[in-house]
Write a protein that binds this DNA or RNA. Sequence first.
DNA 1: TATTGTTATACTCTATAACTATA
DNA 2: TATAGTTATAGAGTATAACAATA
Lengths: 155, 155
Amino acid sequence: MSGPSQLNTVDGLVQLSFLVHGTLERRAAERGLSIVQARLLGVLRDREPTMNELAKLLGLDKSSVTGLVQRAERRGLVARIASRSDKRAVHVSLTGRGRALAVAAAARFEADISAILSCLAQPDQEALCALVSRVLVAQATARQIHLLPATTTSG
Amino acid sequence: MSGPSQLNTVDGLVQLSFLVHGTLERRAAERGLSIVQARLLGVLRDREPTMNELAKLLGLDKSSVTGLVQRAERRGLVARIASRSDKRAVHVSLTGRGRALAVAAAARFEADISAILSCLAQPDQEALCALVSRVLVAQATARQIHLLPATTTSG
DNA sequence: TATTGTTATACTCTATAACTATA
DNA sequence: TATAGTTATAGAGTATAACAATA
């Protein structure tokens, strides 16, 4: 914590990542949410996915999602809704209380991050934003290329 | 993932943070380590703290550290060493195997982050590094100021 | 009395495998 | 047979409270 005033880039990014992650964790915890529960509520803000879709969205096994949704349901944050088109399927939906919680936590968290960035003047914030965006865009592009078939041209 | 090519700064930092965190998680998992276990090994690279000190370093309760160290010990990654000066205390130390694992995982992870940054030319990487450093330093300073008495000057 | 560490207990989060009901 | 979801089970990670040994 009392280290040099200029870190190497890798260390800097790691520390920044822990700072952001820790801030998210703390804000969620204030409302009795774990990071996973917060992610669940966040994902549900604009969707009513089935359990299966939810598992894919969160990158979890379906059995993990069963428990996750169960605990959130017990707290009145989400509701299970039977699908009419497929009697096996269940849709998950935010309750009013769940939505309010998600919105409030997100607002507090965004304010935290803004505060963390407030040490930089506006032009510097914009420069940081531009650099970060370039990294993320390059990363997204690289991932898509990775996912493209390596043996397609002839098949 | 197919979003705009320029995000707002808050979203950008959050996504960057998840990218770094996910990379760390994947590299640790390749060696059968959770992020927490990886942090434990990382912390021990240049220290042999007592359980109590370890708890403070990791921000965990001492009872949590008991279990953490127990599991790492069972896998031959760390060793408990009785303190001579205080018969209650125990020091935790990396084994050779634990150190090798920590070093290898750290190297792979650093290469990952470097690769992620390689989309930026050197001057841009340095600019990013400088901006991130300023944020981290400001944050560290703010935290320390936060801990100073708030009611000293005139109330 | 205070501190160091462990144990007992309980909860969340996660996965695998086996299961039920539906498609 | 295949898919959607749950249950049974197991293990990691976390905390609180109670405890033993030592300071």
